[in-house]
């Protein structure tokens, strides 16, 4: 770990100003990912601006019928929030599927979006990694890539975004409010994370110094027909090999609106709007689900040890759609994942 200076911001303006005043600085929320990366010399910020205590921890109704999730509300407080449980249960389930209670108690909502990949090589500075060290090469291509992506990858990077929460958010399509040196702006969640292309070092579209202040959920929460399905190498405390978030609106057996997003398969939470269109107006049948699932993975590319993810994703989509259509899942104390 490299030495760094540290300050605790009192308000958003103070945080933005403090960060702008320090080269090579970073915001830190719960620190559940950044501090680990610093210990392994993957990240070497010269200055940390602690934003965990900023007055951004509220979860409150929005005038448009939506719900604002404060950036510094913890993942736990968000998952357990009565409004979230009642109106956005897919978010409740996705958050509870991730990490451990201890980590969720510390991790913030803004920080969840800012998590970095769990690709083995990104974490090990003894190996080349374009995301960590642009131009050094991708070790995962041709290496061990069980956790790596199958959709939207590039020859520079096949890393995945590791979040569960963000997969549910991708399906719910909130806007991400940010504050920076040039003022405030809103980013559609879909546009927040990016694909690796030839700049895998960039995880998202934030510009220098911007700080997430809230996630604004739209009114529609798909509380009746939803699913979050997470498949992994042990039953808890493991990152998703493939996860699927689904939200449906149904009229009898007909799907009138659909949201479908995948985790563990791409550099960003992978929402597939063309698949959502394919579901619209269709009967909730195995045939429909199979057709849509095949569509989602049609352009998927395996890299060896992650080849299985293509078939696994296809099957997981079918299962999650079925669970959502049947209304099997409920928001609750324990992530049951419908498995």
């Amino acid at each position: 770990m490299y030495p760094f200076t540290y300050s605790r911001a009192t308000d958003v303006a103070d945080a933005v100003r403090d960060k702008a005043g320090h080269d090579g600085s970073a915001y830190v929320g719960g620190g559940t990912n950044l501090i680990d990366l610093m210990k392994m010399n993957v990240e070497q910020p010269a200055h940390l601006v602690n934003v965990a205590k900023l007055p951004l921890s509220k979860i409150e109704d929005l005038p448009n019928g939506g719900l604002r999730l404060g950036a510094t509300a913890t993942n736990s407080d968000t998952a357990w929030n009565e409004q979230v449980k009642a109106r956005y249960p897919v978010l409740n389930q996705a958050i509870l599927a991730g990490a451990s209670p201890q980590l969720r108690n510390a991790a913030t909502n803004g920080g969840n979006l800012m998590q970095r990949t769990r690709c083995y090589y990104f974490y090990d500075i003894a190996t080349p990694c374009n995301k960590r060290e642009p131009g050094s090469g991708c070790s995962a291509i041709g290496g061990f890539n069980r956790v790596c992506g199958i959709l939207g990858t590039s020859e520079a990077c096949i890393a995945t975004h590791p979040s569960d929460m963000c997969v549910a958010l991708a399906a719910l399509a909130p806007t991400v409010r940010v504050s920076g040196p040039h003022g405030e702006r809103s980013i559609a969640f879909e546009d927040f994370h990016r694909l690796p292309g030839d700049q895998p070092e960039l995880d998202n579209t934030l510009t220098e110094g911007e700080l997430i202040t809230s996630l604004d959920l739209p009114e529609k929460g798909f509380a009746k027909h939803f699913a979050y399905l997470k498949l992994r190498d042990r039953h808890s405390y493991a990152f998703a090999l493939v996860s699927v978030a689904v939200g449906l609106e149904m009229d009898g057996d007909t799907i009138t609106e659909a949201r479908l997003a995948l985790g563990g398969v791409a550099h960003k939470p992978w929402r597939d709007q063309s698949a959502e269109q394919l579901l619209k107006g269709q009967p909730a049948t195995a045939e429909t689900f199979g057709r849509v699932a095949a569509h989602v993975v049609a352009n998927a590319v395996g890299r060896g040890s992650n080849d299985f993810k293509i078939e696994l994703a296809r099957r997981a989509i079918v299962r999650a759609l079925k669970q959502a259509a049947e209304g099997q899942q409920v928001a609750g104390d324990v992530y049951l994942g419908g498995q």
């Binding site: 083995y120 090990d124 190996t127 070790s139 290496g143 061990f144």
Partner: peptide
Amino acid sequence: IMDHKFGRYVNH
């Protein structure tokens, strides 16, 4: 898991 290219355990 050993990455034989590097001769190094990768999930350590």
